[in-house]
Structures are given as structure tokens and as C-alpha cells.
């Protein structure tokens, strides 16, 4: 098994006025390819910070992060953008989609930035829309879709171009349990089908139950890290 993500001695310290806030303390974490990892813990425990850092949206105060063999903490803005574009997909809690683009355009956007041909994009996006069960809704804008549908589009966009890693930050927080269950099933299916690694942050027990590996954070430290099932 290849390692997709590895964090070594990761620290993040925020300066809030004159007070230092230790958001993450000495995090060591390895994620293997094809894994479905759940980061759990109460709010403020550092889940989102850790996710952001793996995705290169935020930089650590010390320590190193490797994603697919590359040092994320040493990249500049433009290299980070390249990394996210080609290797990482994101799903956020809400506001995942660009409001002025239709569902299909949202999905195709990443491919368009990668330079894929129109025909290829079209093919792929229609296929993935079908897979996530949104066939026929491809020309709707986000405001015309339900919350669950929006999150499905977000998942479709995250995996459409077969990234090695998808980071999902509380993807089910705004969904009712039926929709959340659906979405999780979708993510797992997609992960298995496309051989994609998922790291999902949550405090939803439902999500945790779906995870293959469960990582618990508390006050910026990993207090538990074990495989399930």
C-alpha cells in the first residue's frame, strides 16, 4: 500500500491578540491510498485546521506534510494551486458550488482548468451526474437544487477527475439523516469504484460508522487512531 498523506510533528499556533492558541499539537498521521478516514472530535478540536493544512489551504507553524510524495508545507501559492487542481478534491459543509454556474458547469470547471477538451468534459460530467443520481438536473444552478443535491454535485466534482485524495469538511452537517446516509454511501461507493482516498471531518456518529479508520482529535491532539470493521 502506498502512503497518500503523511504528517510529521505538525503544529499550528494562532496568535489571537496576545494569546497563543495551539490549534494543533504534534500531529503524526499517515493515510494509505484508498482509505476512508474519519477525523472526529468536538468543534474547536482542530479537525478543520488539519484538513485545511493537508489541502494546502493553510500552512503549519512547524512540522511537515507530504501529499502523494510532495512536501505541501514547502510549496508556494501557485504550486499549491496545481496540487489542489490535479490531486485533491474538496467537499465543504455548505456553499460548495459557484452560484453563477450550472451543476454541470460546476463539475466541468476543474477539468476545464486542467485543459481537458470540451467533448471529454461533457462525457465525463454527464456520466458522473448519472452516477450521483442527478441526471436531468445538469442545467440547474445551485440555487435551484436542494441541499442534498448540492452536496452530491460537490462530491461529483471532487471525484470526477480521479484525484488521489478527497478532503471533506463536515459534508453532512447541513443535511437531514436520510440525505446524509445517501451522501455517505455515495462517497464510499465512489471511493471504492475510483480508488480514491477520503478524509472526512465530522462529529456526526453516522459518518464515523461509515469510516474504515477513525481518528479522534481533542484540543489539537490525536487521542485515538484505529481501524474499524
Amino acid at each position: 500500500m502506498t502512503t497518500v498523506v503523511s504528517c510529521k510533528q505538525l503544529n499550528k499556533i494562532y496568535q489571537q491578540g496576545s494569546i497563543e492558541v495551539h490549534a494543533l499539537t504534534d500531529i503524526n498521521l499517515t493515510v494509505e491510498a484508498g482509505d476512508f478516514v474519519c477525523l472526529s472530535g468536538p468543534s474547536g478540536s482542530g479537525k478543520s485546521t488539519l484538513l485545511n493544512m493537508i489541502g494546502g489551504l493553510d500552512s503549519p507553524s512547524s512540522g511537515e506534510i507530504m501529499v502523494d510524495g510532495q512536501r505541501v508545507d514547502q510549496m508556494n501559492k501557485s504550486e499549491l494551486a496545481e496540487l489542489r487542481l490535479h490531486k485533491i478534491g474538496f467537499v465543504f459543509q455548505a456553499y460548495n458550488l459557484i452560484p453563477v454556474l450550472t451543476a454541470r458547469e460546476n463539475i466541468e470547471m476543474v477539468m476545464q482548468m486542467q485543459g481537458d477538451s470540451k467533448q471529454y468534459r461533457h462525457q465525463l460530467s454527464m456520466a458522473i451526474l448519472k452516477e450521483v443520481g442527478l441526471e436531468g438536473l445538469e442545467n440547474r444552478r445551485p440555487s435551484e437544487l436542494s441541499g442534498g443535491q448540492q452536496q452530491r454535485v460537490a462530491v461529483a466534482r471532487a471525484i470526477v477527475d480521479k484525484p488521489c485524495l478527497v478532503l471533506a469538511d463536515e459534508p453532512t452537517a447541513n443535511l437531514d439523516s436520510a440525505n446524509a446516509e445517501n451522501l455517505l454511501q455515495l462517497m464510499r461507493d465512489m471511493g471504492e469504484e475510483h480508488q480514491t482516498t477520503f478524509i472526512v471531518s465530522t462529529h456526526d456518529p453516522l459518518v464515523m460508522s461509515h469510516a474504515r479508520r477513525l481518528v479522534k482529535l481533542h484540543d489539537g491532539k490525536i487521542i485515538e487512531n484505529h481501524e474499524q470493521h
Binding site: G55, K77, R84, Y95, M109, V110
Partner: peptide, 16 residues
């Protein structure tokens, strides 16, 4: 603001 953050996380370079 949020949208630009999203664009960045999807890999759009600052220049774009």
C-alpha cells in the same frame, strides 16, 4: 470572499 476561497481550493491560481 467565500467563493474565491472555493475557487482556490479547487486549484484556481491567484492569477486567474
Amino acid at each position: 470572499t467565500r467563493e474565491f476561497g472555493l475557487f482556490q481550493s479547487l486549484g484556481m491560481k491567484p492569477g486567474f
